[in-house]
Amino acid sequence: MATELGVATPRITDGVVLDGVSHAYGATQALERVSLSARGGEVVAIVGPSGCGKSTLLDLVCGLTTPQAGRVEAPRAVLMPQRDQLLPWLTAADNAALALRVNGTSKHAAREKATRLLAELGLGGFERTRPADLSGGMRQRVAFARTLLAGAPLLCLDEPFGALDAITRADTQAWLAEALRRSPRTVLLVTHDVEEAVLLADTVVVLSPRPGRVVKRLRIDLPPGRTATDPGVVELRAEALAAMR
């Protein structure tokens, strides 16, 4: 049985609440009266077609944008953006340690901490490698280590596996589920992949095409260690897909 990851787990009792949130960019209505919530420690997947305002939703939760209408209540959140956004001039360890450096930890201490976490996440020996020399799956792991080390109770993952090939994607999903089990956080996972949502989340929220509205909320009462071919997964996947149409 794996133990807790060597990174301080913040208090995750505070959940996330969005209540009647609407937001527009100019004439484009991105979100319309969206209400959803996540309990502390819950993984909520938000699925929907491209352009349904999923990324806007994360911007609001992260406090990067203020909603034009409605209420957003969220603890400190850290974003894992689409495409890993690793800094090409930094090594894997220094990329993972970015949040520590920003909050004033010395370079040496930050690097040491990041190196330890990378090793636990299966990247031992790669701490001095630059992003250009890492595979896609490894880059996502470094990006996730960076997200964890920020020490925020809430993680906002924006299409984290969107650019990976199918096999790497399946591996990385399983890896993420395990990492979250070892270092629990409240997670908002934005994806357009319904299967990914059902595999990883406790709750799946389906948004309509623009303007994004909540059209379905699915509880996923399946044990962890799910695979895409489990009958329960297949059934819920079909249900979510039907709601998207």
């Binding site: 911007d59 992260c62 406090g63 990067l64 959140a77 850290v78 974003l79 894992m80 953006p81 689409q82 495409r83 956004q85 800094l87 001039w89 970015l98 949040a99 450096r101 920003v102 909050n103 960076r146 920020a150 925020a152 906002c156």
Partner: peptide, 26 residues
């Protein structure tokens, strides 16, 4: 610079000056 990179830095808690130092200047 990709705006997502700036967003990331801000959610990591970076001040304007730190965004410049860690992400933009390099």
């Amino acid at each position: 610079i990709d705006p997502d990179r700036i967003k990331l830095m801000r959610t990591l808690g970076a001040t304007r000056w730190q965004v410049l130092r860690f992400a933009e200047a390099p």
